[in-house]
Design a protein around this nucleic acid. Structure first.
Lengths: 338, 338
DNA sequence: AGGTGGAAGGCGAAGGTTCGCCAAAAGAAA
DNA sequence: TTTCTTTTGGCGAACCTTCGCCTTCCACCT
């Protein structure tokens, strides 16, 4: 790994290093003869341009930083993959950091990104949505796009329509004739919980079904929580005929609980999830759910961010919501497709 | 984002920029008085050191590059999270790229990493395990550690003991008294498939059960494949009493197939998976599986890589295998714990 | 008084690029 | 032949650090 520089190539080709630069970047005018001599020298020496030096002078690293929650969460990983692909397609590198659960290392990590002079930042860490300090930092640094709310605003958000997600799931159950529809919700400190709940209530209202707070139970996002919430619901309101789980992961627990209670899905109780993670298609029975376009969201966010960096996008929309749609499978009955 | 440099801080504090450098890096000797003046000026101006310029002179970026498969795969994501956490704990940044399925963009991406002068590379893309050209590139550049085989060798590999994985799963079934044990295997072009198959055969052999090629069926890693493979197995060998699925994802399909055939798990057929992905604990019934420490593997790989970069590790072991262990749940019967 | 030594801080170079500008040579027009 | 234009390629500066070395100043010792 003896680094070979423009100078080395130049001395081998018998020209100045600036001329080599011209050839390699296809700028300026150089005779075909010298050009070939230089190209040959470069390939013989195995020249690899030094992006560091370039960035230093151009004041741009062609790198975006992603601040992410735990990447082993499928949903987050999809965001990131979408964003990374888009960024790479646009000749941008991706510097990534996976935060701890509390997000308490976000400040330090953000600083690392700024030291490395990333051209922009993509925030994909919902645990930061109430963090005022981080919001402040994000607003005041490089161009930023977020996949979640940023306290204080000023940072464009790209996401999906969570209200509609809750609405579609609930309306589907209503259309199938259910009237006692329970919901297993996520954490109270997350906005998405309220949005999906709002969609649930809106659908009930439209159908003229009264909202019953007894039918809402916290499930904490994970299967265990879904299991426990279902058991409590069944205890409290044995007359429910359907459950809307505010994500597919909890729905796994919901299904387990119903199974353990000897209830058949969808006959004794219909279940609808949301997110449409891959194994939703492989639960027993396959889960009807609302598809949320995580990959596209990441892609869109990266596109917007890079447009902002390029200066192509001067007035980014403060919110971009991608559409969601219902995916009918078996857990609600009513046939796989309308 | 008007960048403020050492010079700016210096002129505000009335000293030379080199002195500011000394203070900020805690090197040299500077009087307490000037030090404070400098610190104050730096914080007033919001000085953020420029890692680019530093790297240029120190010839080290404190950055590792990760070449990864699709990050939305849980297993890969765990590797990456482990590696990233370890790297960050050791003050290293992570530049990541998620390859396409074929890995055909690996060459280009590798070049990007080299241009950015990463200090080392972590390869986590099994689709490259037969790619001779990439093997060549990896061997001849910066320090590298791989999570999969690299053609031509010369790159230390960190992984888990796949043979033992297959062995433990199969032995468990044998111990429970099964004799007709089928296995749903992964893709033929992947080494892990052969290793797990080898473990399966070894366990059979130790127990004095003859290997029957009819009991091996390809499942292509995904639930659909596991479903199809199970159906074919049931057709061909209706006397099987247990199935070892070479990953948990396919096991989902195995469970669905058995369910659709009206067979009860574990009474009519026991199922054991491997990998221990989170939802293995939440299938119906909960899946007995072999735990594979993906996070630790990533962590270990990053640790080794950074030790190599530091020069702390001169003769890395060509192979480091982390231990795996059986996790008993319900899908094999025999009680949750021994 | 002469000498020694340490603290404080400045200086110059280097690291590998990009970019604007200038000089020399070559070709075209007069 | 002279002059003008174009092509070709060199030059210097800038980007922001780190690092080794040097100077200055002051205190202390003999």
């Amino acid at each position: 790994m003896t680094d070979v520089s423009l100078r080395d190539v130049a001395s081998r080709a018998g020209v100045s290093f600036q001329t080599v630069g011209k050839v390699l970047n296809g700028k300026g005018t150089v005779s075909t003869e010298t050009r070939e001599r230089i190209l040959e020298a470069a390939s013989e020496l195995g020249y690899v341009p030094n992006a560091l030096a370039r960035s230093l002078v151009t004041q741009s690293t062609s790198t975006i930083g992603i601040i992410a929650s735990d990447l082993s969460d499928y949903i987050l990983a999809r965001f990131v993959v979408g964003a990374e692909r888009e960024a790479r397609g646009r000749e941008h590198g991706v510097l990534i950091g996976s935060l701890n659960e509390k997000g308490s290392d976000a400040g330090r990590y953000l600083r690392v990104l700024l030291e490395r002079r990333v051209d922009g930042i993509l925030s994909a860490a919902p645990q930061l949505e109430n963090d005022v300090r981080i919001g402040e930092m994000l607003r005041g640094s490089v161009p930023t796009v977020s996949l979640h709310h940023v306290p204080g605003g000023g940072v464009p958000v790209v996401g999906s329509d969570h209200v509609r997600t809750g609405f579609l799931a609930t309306r589907h159950l209503l259309e199938l004739g259910h009237r006692r529809i329970a919901t297993v919700r996520g954490d109270e400190d997350r906005r998405v919980t309220f949005s999906r709940l709002k969609g649930y209530r809106r659908a009930l209202e439209e159908a003229g079904v009264a909202f019953d707070p007894d039918l809402v139970e916290a499930g904490g996002w994970e299967p265990e929580g879904g299991y426990g919430a279902t058991m409590r619901l069944l205890e409290r309101a044995p007359d429910i005929t359907a459950i809307f789980s505010q994500n597919d992961t909890m729905a796994l627990g919901v299904l387990s609980a119903l199974y353990d209670r000897g209830m058949s899905v969808p006959d004794d109780c219909a279940v609808v999830g949301c997110d449409d993670i891959p194994l939703a298609a492989h639960t027993i029975p396959p889960l009807t759910t609302v598809h949320v376009p995580f990959y596209d969201t990441g892609e869109t966010a990266a596109r917007l961010l890079i447009d902002m960096i390029d200066g192509r996008e001067k007035e980014p929309a403060p919110r971009t919501l991608l559409p969601v749609h219902l995916v009918r499978r078996v857990s609600c009955g009513g046939g796989p497709e309308k």
